[in-house]
Design a protein around this nucleic acid. Sequence first.
DNA 1: GACATGTATATGTGCCGTCATATATAGTCG
DNA 2: CGACTATATATGACGGCACATATACATGTC
Lengths: 185, 185
Amino acid sequence: MSLRHAILGFLSLRPMSGYDLKKAFDESVGHFWTADQAQIYRALARLVDDGHVEVRTVEQTGRPDRREHRITEAGLRELDGWLTGAAEPRPMREPFLLKIFFAGRLAPDDLKAVLTRHVDTERRRLETLTGLADGLGRLLAGRDIDLPQRLRLATLDNGIRHTRTEIEWADALLEQIDPPSRPDR
Amino acid sequence: MSLRHAILGFLSLRPMSGYDLKKAFDESVGHFWTADQAQIYRALARLVDDGHVEVRTVEQTGRPDRREHRITEAGLRELDGWLTGAAEPRPMREPFLLKIFFAGRLAPDDLKAVLTRHVDTERRRLETLTGLADGLGRLLAGRDIDLPQRLRLATLDNGIRHTRTEIEWADALLEQIDPPSRPDR
DNA sequence: GACATGTATATGTGCCGTCATATATAGTCG
DNA sequence: CGACTATATATGACGGCACATATACATGTC
């Protein structure tokens, strides 16, 4: 569902080919959304069928021709409807919490290992995200940041906050199940 | 993928029918995992094929017969492998962040409305979760809580923390884009 | 008496996503 | 020279998941 709307979102910024879109997804929303290449092309075909997008072939020399997709008026209306509309109820699925829910049968050391590995993964993710944020921060330093840019930064901030929360939670849980031994009073 | 493992998790606690499993999903992990009824039956069939689960029909009078599923030794090994194994790289997909990413084209009031509605939704979710936690807290008050129970509470705590984080983030963003007017000095 | 709800299992259909693969050319690296 | 990467689009196969629907009986409600 959302994939088509995401594509409309990108096409509202500028006309793009499927190839462009794949790069745009990976480079700009990659930290919270992944899109499969094959699926992008199929979604584009569907958007054209629905009249939300128009295509024209741009011939190129030395490289394959591009199929440039441009959003239509109907497509813009559809996009705005999605943007302002209610959130489609997304099915929550947290595989890691599922593991924790059933991890009572594990040996304590195995459980600790699972949690420690999780913290490591999340720490690495946090570094990636703060790295991205720092990079953008330096790039934009001084200038006044407009609303669209501010919103893009906000999506990054969201990831950073949730990653920090996840690390804090896992650390707290680790301490709970494996209290650091204390000298008796 | 995870659905079969989640089912193995439940069956490691006690033998269950598909109907039991559906209720177990909705009642105990419903706040972070949803499972479709049809999919549960298909997953069970597959688990039986793979030798991870055994079935026997329990005849009942006055109500339909139950097909009781019991985890096998191979199933337990599979479960433990999943529990201790590396997290399968789950594709991140945050539809709301996608909206925010493209929401720069909205009129400021529409954007504020989207964010405000989101905060409301998350606040309601927070109330649900804290309600659940309080209920469990009262139920377990005084007794000593064993590890499996502690882990189940931890999954709830995870949801509460992330929901709080989401609310804080959205509130901060709202203030950023709509600074409360201040009297001039 | 009709209708809804609970118990219980199962199939059909269609969408979406992932992975593999095909095709064609230009440039780069060892 | 051969292998790999980048540019660019497209299809086939397969699996998971959601939603609708079917069946059957008991009990509770208006």
